[in-house]
């Protein structure tokens, strides 16, 4: 657990230094535009205002102290507390990604398992080809096609955005409105991981089905259904949990493409725009959050190992897994 601290420090230090050598900070601060470059005097004043003339180490240290109190500072773009922006944005991204991941899992796991059970059959081969095709077709292209069909042509679903109703509308209709806005982005996000997860499940269950303990179980006269679900599938859960652990930070990562196409103001866009505007407090805060999540994800995966495979013990394990 404690070994996570130097990792975290290392990540923040590298990010801080990388931002330091990124050109264009003063230009962004001066809100310079095409054909209106700031004067030298204005730049000097800005450097003073933002303490940019202090050594990097001093600034890093100050930032670190404030971080310990979870004071992430204020955005340079809108002068609002970063914490506030982060909370709203994270909630939106999390909602989108959790739904997408659940949808993908709900389809991919049963599908992959059944394919494994009928491995080599025509249905399995056809499924494989389909999945590869899906996997090869880029999500953003699918998003544009779905938008055009469902929103522009048929008018069944909203094209973009989070809500279209004012906050004064009744809660129930606002809920429906939000759900309608979620459909297309969730489907587009889920669909990318769907093919991958189905293939992954199939491979792992298949490996289980070919192992000796399944042969032994079959010899004991256990039915095929039980063989697949209670034996092979149960064993396939361990690699799945590892994969899901790695997916935890991605839950808050946000997909820039999908968020852009559907005007979903999530973490991906926030990161991208903050970097473009050299909004350093926001960029740093987002880095810290994603680093924390990566660490939390591997912790969580360890925890779920114990549930998936009772042979894994918790004691001491945490520490070792992390380092």
């Amino acid at each position: 657990m404690l070994s996570a601290v130097p990792t975290l420090l290392g990540i923040t230090l590298v990010t801080f230094l990388l931002l330091e050598i990124l050109p264009g900070r003063e230009m962004a601060l001066a809100r310079a535009g095409e054909g209106n470059l700031p004067s030298r005097e204005m730049l000097d004043r800005l450097r003073q205002t933002y303490h940019l003339d202090d050594p990097v180490s001093t600034r890093y240290f100050h930032w670190l102290i404030r971080l310990c109190r979870w004071d992430l500072g204020e955005s340079l773009l809108d002068q609002r507390p970063v914490n506030e922006t982060l909370r709203v944005t994270a909630a939106r991204t999390l909602a989108l990604n959790l739904l997408a991941l659940s949808l993908a899992l709900a389809i991919a796991v049963p599908l992959g398992t059944r394919w494994a059970a009928s491995a080599g059959s025509r249905r399995d081969r056809l499924g494989s080809v389909l999945m590869y095709l899906l996997y090869a077709f880029p999500g953003f292209a699918a998003a544009l096609i779905l938008q055009n069909l469902f929103a522009v042509r048929w008018g069944m679903l909203p094209l973009q955005g989070v809500t279209s109703l004012p906050s004064s509308a009744p809660l129930f209709s606002r809920g429906l409105d939000l759900a309608a806005h979620l459909v297309l982005p969730v489907v587009c996000l889920a669909y990318g991981s769907l093919a991958y997860l189905a293939r992954f499940t199939r491979a792992n269950v298949l490996e289980g089905l070919h192992s000796h303990y399944v042969d032994a179980a079959r010899a004991r006269g256990i039915g095929e259904g039980d063989l697949v679900w209670r034996h092979a599938f149960r064993n396939a859960l361990v690699p799945m949990v590892t994969l899901l652990g790695a997916l935890v930070p991605a839950l808050l990562g946000g997909s820039i493409l999908i968020e852009t196409i559907f005007s979903w103001p999530g973490m991906g866009r926030l990161y991208f725009e903050s970097l473009q505007n050299r909004d350093y407090p926001v960029v740093l805060a987002l880095t810290v959050v994603s680093a924390l999540l990566t660490l939390a994800g591997s912790l969580l995966a360890d925890f779920f190992y114990c549930i998936a495979d009772p042979r894994v013990e918790m004691e001491g394990g945490f520490h070792d897994q992390l380092s």
Binding site: A151, Q160, G161, T260
Partner: peptide, 13 residues
Amino acid sequence: IPAPATQFQALLT
């Protein structure tokens, strides 16, 4: 609406 193509479609819808 960050994507210009979506901006135009949002007008149509």
